[in-house]
Each structure stands twice: as structure tokens, then as C-alpha cells.
Design a protein around this nucleic acid. Structure first.
Length: 226
DNA sequence: CACCAGGCAAGTA
DNA sequence: TACTTGCATGGT
């Protein structure tokens, strides 16, 4: 039996959806913009990423044709507001090299590939870890994977819904195993988790008293204390 | 001023 | 294998 039972997980989803309403994620107009945003937002506030994306649009550079051959130093300068701009320029170039070499620069060709093969390929790119890979798969390509992030771990471990030591792949497996395989559900659930984390589950100043999850998870905590 | 944000990889023991 | 550190801007 997984740490999070199916019925409990769906109840949590319903609670969050009732509280926040639909999220409309991912905030990006094209698959390419979603992919670039996924790399730029690594350990970085979305507000900063927006500035970098806006700059790329101003420069007319937000396309596969422009980004594939672009000079890394030039790209770094344009994405500077997103932070870690040198390493992220390298990571973006790594992605576009992969896209060119494996798929002739065609994002449409990615979508035809099976989920697990594509996930392994993305994880093989330097600078694309599990969260970035799953974000690209779900939000840019519409594949049925679940995106885990720091908020997922923080919220679920704080509510004693999973053990503190649960890692990324374990959390992803729990969600995938407990939820019906529906892209819109995976999409909305992750968005709701991030919205919950931003408002009610910060690293400091937790504000757990006002958390929309209320006391969901307390039963498990009592069980653990037996 | 300190701390944090929708990670990831490289270095160390 | 299991920690630790570097990467960097911008908002609270």
C-alpha cells in the first residue's frame, strides 16, 4: 500500500481545486516557450523567468530556428534576469543540440515518441533533471507524467502524508500509481500544489493554520505515533 | 540586512 | 553512496 491512498489523494485534489479554482497552467503560449521556461525556472521565481522570456520575445529569438545556432554568450545576456544565466544558457544550448541531432529540430517529432523513451532521453541532457523533464513532457508535450517539485515534498511531508525521506521518483510513482492516468488531472494537480506552496507552505513562516488542506493527514500522523 | 524562488550537476570523503 | 557547494538575479 502506497503512503498516499488513491481516495485520499483525490480528496486532496478536490479540496485544493475547490479552494483555488482552475489554474490555467502552464503560462506559455507555445511548446517551445514552455520548454525554455521550464529550464529558466530552475530554482528561480517565475517573475524573474517572465523578464527573461519577454526579452527573448523582444529580440525575436524565441524560436527553434533562432535558438539552435545562437551564440551561448548572446543567449546568456538576454536571459540574465532569470539568474544562473551562464549555466542556463549552456543548458538551453544542450537541449537545442539534442533536438537538432535527434529530431532535426522538430518539436512535433518529440510528441510522437513514447513517454518513457522520451523521459530517458531528456534526462540524458546536461541540465535537464527529473522536474524539468517531467514539466516538458506534461506541459509542453501533453504526456501523462506527474511533475514533482519542492512544494510537493514540503506539503506532503509536513502533513505526514509521505515520509520525510521520500525522494523525487518515489513521489512521482505514488502519484502515478494512485491517480487515474489523465493529463488534465496531472496538469491541474501540480499547478494547485505549487499555488498551495507559494501561499501556505513557504520554507519559513509556514502558515499551516490557514492551509486549505486543513488537517488532512493528521490521521496518519496519529498512526505513526502509535 | 537575511532569506527565498516551480533544480541540477560537480566536487568531496 | 551520501553530503556539500556553486550557480545569480530580483523581490520581500
Amino acid at each position: 500500500m502506497p503512503p498516499v491512498a488513491r481516495s485520499q489523494l483525490l480528496a486532496i485534489y478536490e479540496r485544493l481545486y475547490s479552494f483555488f479554482g482552475p489554474s490555467g497552467w502552464w503560462p506559455g503560449e507555445t511548446p517551445l516557450e514552455v520548454i525554455v521556461g521550464a529550464i529558466l525556472t530552475q530554482n528561480t521565481s517565475w517573475r524573474n523567468v517572465e523578464q527573461a522570456l519577454a526579452r527573448l520575445k523582444e529580440e525575436g529569438a524565441l524560436s527553434v530556428e533562432r535558438l539552435t545556432p545562437i551564440a551561448e554568450a548572446q543567449l546568456a545576456e538576454w536571459i540574465r534576469p532569470a539568474g544562473y544565466y551562464r549555466i542556463k544558457a549552456r543548458r538551453l544550448k544542450n537541449f537545442f543540440r539534442f533536438l537538432q541531432e535527434e529530431y532535426q529540430g522538430r518539436i512535433g517529432a518529440l510528441i510522437e515518441q513514447p513517454l518513457e523513451k522520451l523521459r530517458e532521453q531528456l534526462l540524458g541532457i546536461r541540465g535537464v533533471g527529473p522536474e524539468t523533464a517531467d514539466s516538458i513532457l506534461l506541459y509542453a508535450l501533453g504526456k501523462p507524467t506527474f511533475v514533482v517539485d519542492t512544494y510537493t515534498h514540503r506539503i506532503f511531508s509536513r502533513h505526514h502524508l509521505v515520509p520525510e525521506e521520500t525522494d523525487y521518483e518515489d513521489l512521482r510513482s505514488y502519484f502515478l500509481g494512485a491517480l487515474p492516468e489523465e493529463v488534465p488531472l496531472f496538469n491541474e494537480f501540480h499547478a494547485l500544489i505549487v499555488r498551495t506552496g507559494k501561499t501556505y507552505c513557504r520554507k519559513k513562516a509556514p502558515l499551516c493554520g490557514d492551509c486549505p488542506l486543513g488537517d488532512m493527514g493528521m490521521e496518519r500522523q496519529i498512526n505513526n505515533n502509535q
